[in-house]
Amino acid sequence: MDVFGIPIQALMGQLMLGIVNGSFYAVMSLGLAIIFGVLKIVNFAHGAFFMLGAFTAFLLAQHLGANYWTTLLVAPLAVALFGMLFEWLFLRRLYGLDPIYGLLLTFSLVLVLEGGFRVAFGSSGQPFATPEALQGAINLGFMYLPVYRGFVIVAALLICLVTWFVIERTALGASLRAATERAELTQAFGINVPRLVTLTYGVGVGLAGFAGVLAAPIFHVNPSMGSSLVIIIFAVVVIGGLGSIMGAIVTGLGLGVVEGFTRVFYSEFSSTIVFLVMVLVLLLRPAGLFGREEG
């Protein structure tokens, strides 16, 4: 059976791959959206934290012999700690200033991290083995889906849902949302807002680190692995609506699928389609698909 002259099998295959890529977009843009929501900082270093997650996992496995499941737990925590240190030492000095300062500072962190890792590990990258339990492929009828990619979808959706649940349905999340809306008032209620902000940044970049570990067996661990991703992630957050949690998740997955379909019909256009969608959305709904118009 064909759709517009394309075999349905090829279409389904690309749809599946789109969902896998969309899972990465969702986890990454979720972290970015949380950070922007609370800190009002455009975290340009998000891709570098993604890379840092992958490299931490690689180093843990290489030097300490850690297995994959340990790295999946430890590496994001390590990235989160590093992020919190960065926020505490540098980033917090920029709150209340023009957002361009935050952008510049986080961008400089990208240059330092990527440059440092390039000097230490070279540009071609390091191999990272797929965990044994997740090797092989499943026959879906229309394609062979590597088991690991299936696992990525499940793990990504799970972490997105947990994050959403914590923010929207728990007391901690309620304080967080309150701090986003009215920081001084929240502080007056006895909640330590600066600590909450540090924690938020940690969680946001920890999510990027988590995505990095998920990506390590697929993309090969190399210093620039985050830099191509980060631009798409920004587009995803803008399309979803700045600061919208659900918007980031849904848009991330959706754009992965749109990109996948574009590869079938006109492959050369696939790296541009996300930005075309962004332009259209900004024209029709300037606050993004799930964003609220301000004031």
Partner: peptide, 15 residues
């Protein structure tokens, strides 16, 4: 055809 510095080749692998 893919751009320089592509990380995800899965779609091209299927093609």
């Amino acid at each position: 055809r893919h751009p320089l510095n592509t990380t995800d080749f899965s779609s091209y692998a299927l093609q």
